[in-house]
C-alpha cells in the first residue's frame, strides 16, 4: 500500500486540467478581467482539447465566479470581486483626499514594481515596455492629450506585468484599469495643464530608461518621483480650481446678482 500511485500519477480529469490552465492564464494576466474569450471552437483548437472537456471546464470556472456568460459570449469576470470597483468609487466620493491616498499607496508600490521589473523583465517584457513608451511619445508629439493619458496607463500596466508578481499584476493592474475609467481622479485635468505633460513625459522616459538599463535603484527612484509629482500637481490643480470657483462665486454675489 505504501507506494500506491493512484493519487499522485493518475492525471486529473481533463476538464479540471483545462480549468487550471485557464486560471493560470488569468492569474498571470494573459487573460484580463472583462476580456472576452475566443469562441469555443477556436479555444478548443488552441488548447488542443475536445469541445465537451472545454465546455465542462468553462462551466466550472463560471461556478467559481471566474468567468461569466453574457450577451452570447464568455468573459473573464471581475477578479477582485464584483463590488471592488464600486466600493472604491464610494470611498472616493466619501473621503476628501482619496486620490491622494491612491497616489500615496501607489508611490511605494510603483517604486518596488519598477525595481522588480528592472531585475526580472524578460526581453519580451522589455520590448513591450519600450513599445508602450514610444506610444506615449508619439501621442505627445501629435498633441493628443486624451490618447496620451491612455497610453500612460498602459505603460504602467506593462511595468506591473514585468514585475512578475501576480498580486502586483492583479491589484495594481486592477487599480490602473479604474484609473483608465477615471474612477480615481480626472487624468485629463492633469494632461490638459500647461507644462505638466512635458514633465510627465520626461518622468516616463526616466522610468523606461532605468528599467531598460536593468537598474532597480534608479527605476525605483524614478517611479517614486513620478508618483510624487503627479500627487503634487493634482493637489495644486485642485487648489487653484477651488480658488477659481470661490472667486467666481464671489463675483456672482457682488456684481452678477439679480
Amino acid at each position: 500500500m505504501g507506494y500506491t500511485a493512484k493519487n499522485h500519477i493518475r492525471p486529473k480529469k481533463l476538464s479540471e486540467a483545462v480549468a487550471r490552465h485557464l486560471e493560470s492564464l488569468i492569474l498571470e494576466g494573459t487573460l484580463r478581467s472583462g476580456e472576452r474569450l475566443p469562441p469555443e471552437r477556436e479555444l478548443a483548437l488552441r488548447l488542443d482539447v475536445s469541445r465537451p472537456s472545454l465546455r465542462e471546464a468553462l462551466a466550472t470556472l463560471e461556478q467559481r465566479g471566474i468567468l461569466e456568460t453574457r450577451r452570447g459570449g464568455t468573459f473573464v469576470g471581475p477578479i477582485l470581486g464584483a463590488t471592488f470597483a464600486s466600493d472604491l468609487q464610494d470611498l472616493m466620493r466619501s473621503s476628501p483626499d482619496s486620490p491622494g491616498d491612491y497616489l500615496e499607496f501607489r508611490s511605494g508600490m510603483d517604486g518596488m514594481a519598477a525595481a522588480f521589473a528592472a531585475e526580472r523583465a524578460s526581453d519580451i517584457d522589455l520590448d513591450t515596455i519600450g513599445q508602450r513608451f514610444r506610444a506615449i511619445e508619439e501621442r505627445h508629439q501629435r498633441e493628443q492629450p486624451d490618447d496620451e493619458a491612455d497610453a500612460d496607463a498602459l505603460f504602467h500596466l506593462a511595468i506591473y506585468e514585468a514585475s512578475h508578481n501576480v498580486l502586483m499584476i492583479q491589484i495594481m493592474g486592477g487599480l490602473a484599469d479604474l484609473l483608465r475609467q477615471d474612477v480615481l481622479y480626472n487624468r485629463f485635468k492633469l494632461y490638459n495643464r500647461q507644462g505638466v505633460r512635458e514633465l510627465l513625459l520626461e518622468q516616463h522616459r526616466a522610468i523606461h530608461d532605468a528599467i531598460q538599463a536593468r537598474d532597480p535603484q534608479a527605476a525605483r527612484a524614478a517611479a517614486e518621483a513620478h508618483v510624487a509629482f503627479t500627487r503634487a500637481a493634482l493637489s495644486e490643480i485642485d487648489r487653484t480650481d477651488t480658488r477659481l470657483e470661490l472667486a467666481l462665486r464671489r463675483f456672482a454675489e457682488t456684481d452678477g446678482g439679480p
Binding site: R20, I26, L27, I79, N165, V166, I171
Partner: peptide, 22 residues
C-alpha cells in the same frame, strides 16, 4: 470563497511567494 482572486490564489499554491512579496 466570494472573491475570484481568493479562489485563484487558493488553488495555485505557487502564488504564495508572490503573496508574501506583495
Amino acid at each position: 470563497p466570494a472573491t475570484p482572486l481568493v479562489w485563484l490564489l487558493r488553488s495555485h499554491p505557487e502564488a504564495a511567494e508572490d503573496y508574501l512579496e506583495f
